[in-house]
Design a protein around this nucleic acid. Sequence first.
RNA 1: CGGGGCGUAGCGCAGCCUGGUAGCGCGACGGUUUUGGGUACCGUAGGCCGGAGGUUCGAAUCCUCUCGCCCCGACCA
Length: 451
Amino acid sequence: MRLSRYFLPVLKEDPKEAQIVSHRLMLRAGMIKQQTAGIYSWLPLGYKVLDRIQQIVHQEQQRAGHIPLLMPTLQPADLWRESGRYDDYGEEMLRIKDRHKRDLLYGPTNEEMITDIFRSHVSSYKDLPLTLYHIQWKFRDEIRPRFGVMRGREFLMKDGYNFDLTKEDALHAYNRHLVSYLRSYERMGLQAIPMRADGGPIGGDYTHEFLVLAETGESEVFYDSEITDLTFGDREIDYDSVEQCQAVLEEFTSRYARTDETHDQAIFDKVPEDRRRTARGIEVGQIFYFGTKYSEPMGATVVGPDGARVPVHMGSHGIGVSRLLGAIIEANHDEKGIIWPEGVTPFHVGIVNLKQGDPSTDSACEALYRELKAKGLDPLYDDRDERAGAKFATMDLIGLPWRITVGPRGLANNKVELTNRRSGESEEIAPQDAVARLDEIYRPVLAAAKL
RNA sequence: CGGGGCGUAGCGCAGCCUGGUAGCGCGACGGUUUUGGGUACCGUAGGCCGGAGGUUCGAAUCCUCUCGCCCCGACCA
């Protein structure tokens, strides 16, 4: 993309309403525009990152064998009356009447609807196991939306639902989700720690929240420092293998890691003192096994091998897709702006032409732009007639991980500058070597995107 | 919902107390200048001062009502 033809309304000054760094940077980098409290337009740069995150989530869910579909944002109230949640949900649910005075609601989640779909079409154990998911906008009428996309009222969420014949099968689905989430967050450049969560009235040990450590997190967390040494890495996993998935669960959940909701000081005290950590975290996902809570009242049953009709065991599993933008920025920024991890960056590399209009720099930039695209990379070429300082400031703000600086001085020796946004380190290399380096750097990212 | 604050040019703000032709910085646009980290100067455009009502010869300013937004708290992917 040529910046002169793009739509990137960056702000030089901090918008006064933005209190935390991710919100401030998203506004300044021209990623979002607030339309009303807790509701945002996604401007091109923000939309591009949102899209990259969605792609990762889609790929990892499908890799785990989960099936995508799409349910509507508006739902009939009757489904929620069946589960009993229409009255329970309270003010957070946005209720709407259509012209026929029928009660609708803007979905805050989709357990009822997915259960309805399931019961309409599935009646045999032979169709199980089944996990369906979608990525769709949700609405929860928060008392006080804040922190930009971190606590919006309208938000994009991936929510998946597993249907299994037995509790054991459903727990395998739970484990599959845990593994796929670990992979997803790592591809986004995030460390998200599974922490024992509060199951609410349903209770049980079968729910974990995924927390990204950040000073501005809304939850207080307590953990054994050994857990932050764990990475999933590029290990191969067979999602059908109960043993393998169970092993990952045990590996990642055996150490102490809890939010303030479930924190137990007596157990925490057994962690060696030098490994005890207290911090703050942002919740970016949750997995939950809830058995027959919805299948029973809503009649989602299958006929088992013994001929008996039984309610299916279910769980729901969510990733806060739009919130992840905020979480990633909270965890990856400096005083100059955002620093995107390579897995989610809106553009792979920025090209800065220091002397726009100069035939040699212009043609060198054009050549770089062409060659990077030929490698399957997505460059942003700042071809505006701006001074060097303004171009650097924009690049730093929007946070592309790599920058190629092209000026007459270096070009005289057939050199451009390749700069890493995070470390600030630069090296002077030939243009073709810069292309080769970037191709190499992004090869794993592009390869991971292939199923 | 309780407490606090703010709505004036695209953005950030002053003016309000003490009523009298609406200002500053940044940005935009046109020039000149400059060219490796937001250059300097000259010029131009852009506002029913959130909305409604009231007081007054006269309201951004005073009064009443209303809408919206932000911050703190209780609640939440």
